[in-house]
Amino acid sequence: MSIQTPEAPTTLPPAEPPKKAKTGRRSIFLRRPFFTIALIVAAAYVLAAIFAPFVAPYDPVMQDINAMMQAPSVAHPLGTDSYGQDILSRVIYGARYALIIGIFSVLIGAAGGLVIGLAAGLSGGWLEWALMRLIDSILALPSLILAVAFIAILGQGVDKVVVAVGLSMIGPFARTVRADVMQVRVQLFVEAATLMSIPYLKVIWRHVLPNVIFPLAVQVTIRISEAILVSSSLSFLGIGVTPPTPDWGLMIAEGRAFVSFAAWMSAMPGFALALLLIALSIVGDGIREEFDPKLRRGA
């Protein structure tokens, strides 16, 4: 769902002709301080994920029976969980799983959505009708329930969660892709290209795809957050990522039994998750506003 962006009108003065990309890029960090901060935060998460073994003070699955459920201290800045595992280390490693699940499941969803959406948008007749009904059907099933069903079939674990969440996201992607294809299809340059008897596939490749890919990429940035949230919801329901994997959703779910006296067990991974999602959403907005051809045209 492309939600209109808050800053769009202010940052793109309508009177001004579009600047060259180079100058635009140079100033974006100055023009958008929130974007810059969010980008730094998101980058920090990515770095933490990549270099987790060097950054984390402990092994994320090292149990210490003498340090169970300790409040945040110097030795354990974010406290320990009910196995004596260091929460800071688990949060840092958790960034890996969050990003892996977020990115790869969305890629699966986007790829599936692209194929079905393109096919539905470009084909006609009964095939289009059938594909549209297929998309409607996927959309009509709540994606969390779909993900639960897929997990039931596939089994559990990070890879399975990626596939299950990815499959359950195909519907929304397919719909936006198809909508974009429909818009492009009727535009003059496509008709012109077709009239010039340029091969069909080439028209798609040269003219349709580029106009579909960009909004799709925007969707991807938005839906990464959704994928991470759905995967953590699965953990809450007791399925999904396998413990003791340092996954945030799992940590939140496990810590909920101790909320009244050890709130940090759920709260720390919860904040880590929220911070990442906030950063991703600001970054996503910023990128969209800067580069979305539609918004620029509109402005």
Binding site: Q63, Y83, A152, G155, Q156, G157, T242, P243, P244
Partner: peptide, 27 residues
């Protein structure tokens, strides 16, 4: 899953690598 999580590192000490597999109660 607490027992499994606690047992796995103990088995590692005697050269048994226990792959913890979380499945639904029904399965």
């Amino acid at each position: 899953t607490r027992v499994a999580q606690t047992v796995a590192p103990m088995l590692a000490q005697i050269g048994i690598k226990a792959n913890l597999e979380l499945i639904e109660p029904a399965a």
